[in-house]
Computed example of a mutant assay.
Amino acid sequence: MLAPSNEPLDIDLLVLPETNLILIASVIEPLRGANRIVGSEIYRWRIFTPDGAPADTTSRIPVPAHAAFRPEKDRFPLFVLGSYNWRRSATSALKMQLSKTARHRSMIAGIESGSWLLAEASLLDNFSATTHWEDFEEFAAAYPQVRMIRDRFVIDGKRITTGGSLPTLDLMLEIIRRRQGYSLALEVTRLFIYEQGSAQVMPSTAGLRMSDTRVAHAVRLMEDNVEQPIVLARLAKRVGVSARHLQTLFQEGMGVAPHVHYLALRLNAARRKVIETRATFADIAAATGFNSASAFSRSYRAHFSESASDTRKRLRRRTPDANDRPQ
Rank of each mutant, 00 (worst) to 15 (best):
V231Q: 13
V231N: 14
V231I: 11
L232I: 11
L232H: 04
A233K: 15
R234V: 04
R234P: 00
R234F: 02
R234K: 10
L235R: 02
L235M: 12
L235E: 02
L235G: 00
L235Y: 02
A236H: 01
A236E: 01
A236W: 01
K237F: 02
K237T: 05
K237G: 02
K237Q: 12
K237A: 06
K237C: 00
R238L: 11
R238I: 06
V239P: 00
V239F: 08
G240E: 12
V241M: 07
S242P: 03
A243Y: 00
A243T: 03
A243V: 02
R244N: 12
R244S: 13
R244C: 04
H245C: 11
H245K: 13
H245V: 13
Q247C: 14
Q247T: 15
Q247M: 15
T248L: 12
L249D: 03
L249V: 09
L249N: 03
F250V: 10
F250G: 04
F250P: 05
F250K: 03
Q251D: 15
Q251V: 12
E252K: 15
G253T: 08
G253M: 06
M254Q: 10
M254W: 04
G255P: 15
G255D: 15
V256S: 06
A257M: 14
A257S: 11
A257D: 11
P258R: 07
P258T: 09
P258D: 08
P258S: 09
V260S: 05
V260N: 02
V260T: 13
V260L: 06
H261D: 03
Y262I: 00
Y262T: 01
Y262M: 02
L263R: 06
L263Y: 00
L263A: 04
L263Q: 07
L263T: 01
A264R: 01
L265F: 07
L265G: 00
L265W: 03
L267F: 11
L267M: 14
L267W: 07
N268Y: 06
N268C: 11
N268V: 09
A269K: 10
